[in-house]
Design a protein around this nucleic acid. Structure first.
Lengths: 232, 232
DNA sequence: CGAGCTCTTGAGGTCATTCAACTCAAGTGG
DNA sequence: CCACTTGAGTTGAATGACCTCAAGAGCTCG
């Protein structure tokens, strides 16, 4: 049970535009829970009983088939996951595990659907969030189908650089094995790919990345807002 | 301009639950248009001025980067496309072209967003549709990252067989070059993949497919509802 | 019947994976 | 304090998957 004393949750885009009454109803059956690192939160194939909202930490959304596993996306605060399964009252398509200590709000799916019908502000927020998720996955698909692994890595680095205000030097926010999985390659191949990008001024040491010639790297990577941007 | 005399449109899932008044408003600025085959409808990067609803025919949603092109998905009636861009008032992430003669309803994006706020039934339908689109792309991503080209083809064939009530014999509904693009491979590789699947009872002649041993093919392809089903 | 397709086939190369060994850094426990 | 362990990351060699380029086969349609 969760009362309205969590301004960090109330002020999320998803909840900001709804009435106090609707918010109270939504939170009546909700939990705010803190999980240790490397804990399984959900398993693909299960029913989507709860909408999850990540408030703090980070979560890996991954999927398995035939003894293979791949990371579909990494969730950072503040965002929801498995919104689509909640809406459709369907089964999870991805599993989720915490990567670090994480704080998560869990809202019963049925309540989400109920309040959606009652509160137009919430409905609009859900749709906007969902549309953003959709566009993000489309970009992932384009990235996978139109680019080689090397190109994906180059664009990933440029994208992280942009996140740091275009800094030439920054730290990877993922373990390399994890990054490899997100980019759709093996850890070994990632290692070689980093070496191959030395030709474009990329130097990596541990988690530290140095892009000494961003212009040259961009000439190779050809980033585009239609694949690489996170917003819109 | 489109009056309410198109029951085929009015009865679409997306519009079925809305009031007559909202529907009338929505259709006030809408067009119902018929396009010849192989016509470009939209180009990625443009602003999403219209929501498109495919009533008849088929449409290819594709994307380009660096002189490469890939088919992201094929739209069959009755469904919408670029709903997410419409919602977010953003730019198209994909281009669209007709594959055959197609009838399409085009609704101004602004009207869609307006009516969304006014009509709860419509809002709910939009969200359900969008969630379905999202889940479908997630499945595409999993398919691409977890399976080899051969496995993707095998599962595609099983999926088409299911569409025909589990028939052993059916016709491909796509040109092979198009199918190759959807599956993320080259036409040449598709050709070879068909040959490789002969070992599992697959025979192809022109557009005709014969699956003489579905059990054996399934043992290889390992289909799962978490990747291969179209619904839920 | 020839023009223009798609589709197929072959040869060769590139990209990426597998498997195994090795490095390195960070604990752990004697 | 130092071996021992552990796990991530790297490197190498061999293999496999997939692509490119080029040419030929089979279709369809005027």
């Amino acid at each position: 049970m969760l009362d309205s004393t969590f301004p960090e949750v109330r002020s999320l885009d998803l909840f900001a535009d709804m009435s106090d009454e609707s918010y109270a109803k939504l939170m009546r059956g909700a939990y705010l829970q803190t999980f240790p690192p490397h804990v399984d939160l959900i398993t693909e194939g299960e029913e989507a009983d709860f909408l999850h909202v990540l408030v703090l930490g980070s979560v890996d959304l991954f999927s398995s088939w035939n003894n293979r596993e791949t990371s579909v996306s990494i969730v950072k605060p503040v965002s929801t996951f498995i919104l689509a399964a909640t809406i459709r009252d369907a089964r999870y398509l991805m599993s989720a595990r915490t990567m670090e200590k994480s704080r998560i709000v869990m809202i019963p799916s049925q309540d989400v659907r109920e309040i959606f019908d009652l509160d137009a502000g919430f409905a609009r927020a859900v749709v906007v969030e969902l549309a953003a998720c959709y566009r993000s996955v489309i970009k992932t698909t384009k990235n996978l189908k139109l680019r080689t692994a090397l190109e994906r890595l180059a664009n990933y680095l440029l994208s992280r650089s942009k996140d740091h205000n275009g800094a030439q030097h920054f730290a990877l926010d993922l373990e390399k094995r994890q990054l490899a999985s997100v980019l759709g390659m093996t850890p070994e191949n990632l290692s070689r790919a980093f070496k191959a990008l030395q030709a474009y001024g990329v130097a990596v040491s541990g988690e530290n990345v140095e892009l000494s010639d961003i212009t040259e790297l961009e000439k190779f990577a050809k980033p585009t807002t239609l694949i690489d941007d996170n917003q819109t």
